[in-house]
C-alpha cells in the first residue's frame, strides 16, 4: 500500500507540507514553492496537493509541477495527485513573510503587500536589497522573468531585480 493511503489525514497533511517546504522555485531557488504561495493547500480527499500558477504564461509552471511530483514520489507519496486551480488568482500578497525576507537576502527587492490596491505607476518606495537605500530607480519594467522588473540603486550603484506587485 502506498504511504499516502496508510497515514491519518493529519499525518498525511503534515508529511506533504514538510516535503513541499523543501521544494525550491526553479527560477528563484532561494525560496520554496510554499513560501511563494504557489502551493495553495492539501486536499485530504484524493489526496491531492493544490497549486496555482503565478503568471498565466510563466514557463516555470510545468517545471514547478514536475519538481513537486518528484519530491512527492521520493517521499513515497506517489498516490498524492497534483491539482491546478486558477481561482482566486495568485497575487504577490500570497508570498509569506519568511519568503519576502529570503528574497531580499537573495538580492531581489520583495513586493510590498496590498498589490490589488496600489497604482501600477510605481509611486511606492523601493528599497535596495543590498544597501537598504531608497534612492533607487526603475531601469526596465520587465526583467529576467515575467514576475520581476529591473531596478538600480543610486547609492551603491548595483542593479537589482524587483518582484513586481501582481
Amino acid at each position: 500500500m502506498a504511504a499516502g493511503a496508510a497515514l491519518s489525514e493529519k499525518a498525511l497533511r503534515d508529511r506533504i507540507e514538510t516535503v513541499l517546504a523543501e521544494v525550491p522555485d526553479p527560477e528563484i531557488p532561494a525560496v520554496s514553492v510554499v513560501e511563494l504561495g504557489i502551493v495553495r493547500g492539501v486536499d485530504p480527499e484524493g489526496p491531492s496537493v493544490i497549486i496555482t500558477p503565478t503568471y498565466t504564461g510563466c514557463p516555470a509552471t510545468i517545471a514547478i509541477e514536475m519538481a513537486i511530483r518528484v519530491a512527492l514520489d521520493e517521499a513515497g507519496l506517489e498516490d498524492v495527485a497534483i491539482r491546478t486551480v486558477l481561482s482566486p488568482p495568485w497575487s504577490t500578497d500570497m508570498i509569506s513573510d519568511a519568503g519576502r525576507e529570503k528574497l531580499r537576502a537573495y538580492g531581489i527587492a520583495p513586493p510590498p503587500k496590498g498589490a490589488e490596491a496600489r497604482s501600477l505607476r510605481g509611486a511606492d518606495i523601493v528599497e535596495c536589497p543590498r544597501c537598504g537605500s531608497t534612492h533607487t530607480q526603475e531601469v526596465s519594467r520587465f526583467g529576467s522573468t515575467p514576475c520581476k522588473a529591473l531596478w538600480k540603486c543610486a547609492d551603491c550603484h548595483e542593479p537589482f531585480d524587483r518582484f513586481k506587485c501582481h
Binding site: 500558477p53 504564461g57 510563466c58 526596465s140 520587465f142
Partner: peptide
C-alpha cells in the same frame, strides 16, 4: 524583454 514578456502573458 518587454515584448517577449507581453507575448508570454498572451501565450498563457
Amino acid at each position: 524583454l518587454s515584448l517577449s514578456n507581453l507575448g508570454l502573458d498572451l501565450m498563457g
